[in-house]
Amino acid sequence: EEPWTQNQQKLLELALQQYPRGSSDRWDKIARCVPSKSKEDCIARYKLLVE
Rank of each mutant, 00 (worst) to 15 (best):
E1V: 04
E1L: 15
E2R: 03
E2G: 05
E2D: 15
P3Q: 14
P3L: 15
P3Y: 15
P3F: 15
P3W: 07
W4K: 03
W4A: 00
W4L: 00
W4N: 02
W4S: 03
W4E: 03
T5W: 00
T5I: 03
T5L: 03
Q6Y: 05
Q6N: 15
Q6C: 13
Q6I: 12
Q6R: 11
N7L: 10
N7M: 11
N7Q: 12
N7A: 10
Q8E: 07
Q8T: 04
Q8Y: 01
Q8R: 04
Q8P: 01
Q9I: 15
Q9P: 00
Q9K: 09
Q9M: 14
Q9V: 14
K10R: 14
K10M: 08
K10F: 09
L11R: 08
L11K: 10
L11G: 07
L11C: 14
L12K: 00
L12D: 00
L12S: 01
L12C: 00
L12N: 04
L12T: 01
E13W: 08
E13L: 09
E13C: 08
E13N: 07
L14Q: 12
L14T: 11
L14R: 11
L14S: 14
L14F: 10
L14V: 11
L14D: 12
L14I: 12
A15V: 00
A15M: 03
A15D: 01
A15E: 00
A15S: 07
A15G: 07
A15T: 00
L16V: 11
L16Y: 06
L16E: 03
L16S: 03
L16N: 03
L16D: 01
L16A: 09
L16I: 14
Q17K: 13
Q17P: 07
Q17R: 11
Q17S: 13
Q17C: 07
Q18H: 06
Q18Y: 08
Q18K: 15
Q18P: 00
Q18T: 10
Q18N: 07
Q18V: 06
Y19L: 04
Y19N: 06
Y19F: 12
Y19R: 00
P20G: 07
P20M: 04
R21C: 07
R21N: 05
R21Q: 15
R21S: 12
G22W: 07
G22H: 08
G22S: 10
G22F: 09
S23T: 13
S23D: 14
S23R: 06
S23A: 12
S24D: 13
S24A: 13
S24E: 14
D25N: 08
D25I: 06
D25Y: 10
R26Y: 13
W27V: 02
W27E: 05
W27Q: 03
W27R: 02
W27L: 02
D28C: 06
D28T: 14
D28Q: 10
K29V: 03
K29C: 09
K29S: 12
I30L: 03
I30G: 00
I30R: 02
I30D: 02
A31M: 03
A31Q: 11
A31H: 04
A31T: 04
A31L: 01
A31K: 03
R32T: 12
R32N: 14
R32V: 09
C33P: 01
C33Y: 08
C33W: 13
C33F: 14
C33A: 11
V34E: 00
V34P: 01
V34A: 00
V34M: 02
V34F: 03
P35M: 07
P35G: 11
P35N: 06
P35Q: 12
P35T: 07
P35L: 05
P35C: 07
P35R: 07
P35A: 11
S36Q: 13
S36K: 07
S36A: 13
K37M: 08
K37I: 00
K37R: 08
K37V: 03
K37H: 15
K37A: 04
S38V: 03
S38D: 04
S38W: 00
S38A: 06
S38I: 05
S38N: 08
K39F: 00
K39G: 04
K39D: 02
K39L: 05
K39S: 11
K39N: 03
K39P: 15
E40K: 08
E40W: 11
E40H: 09
E40D: 11
E40N: 13
E40C: 07
D41E: 12
D41H: 06
D41A: 13
D41Q: 13
C42E: 00
C42L: 01
C42I: 06
C42P: 00
C42M: 00
I43V: 13
I43W: 07
I43C: 09
I43G: 04
I43N: 03
I43S: 05
I43E: 11
A44E: 12
A44C: 11
A44Y: 05
A44R: 12
A44I: 09
A44N: 10
R45S: 01
R45H: 11
R45A: 07
R45C: 04
Y46V: 12
Y46M: 04
Y46W: 07
Y46K: 09
K47F: 08
K47Y: 07
K47L: 08
L48A: 14
L48D: 06
L48H: 09
L48P: 04
L48S: 14
L49Y: 12
L49N: 13
L49F: 14
L49G: 15
V50Y: 09
V50Q: 14
V50F: 14
V50M: 11
E51N: 05
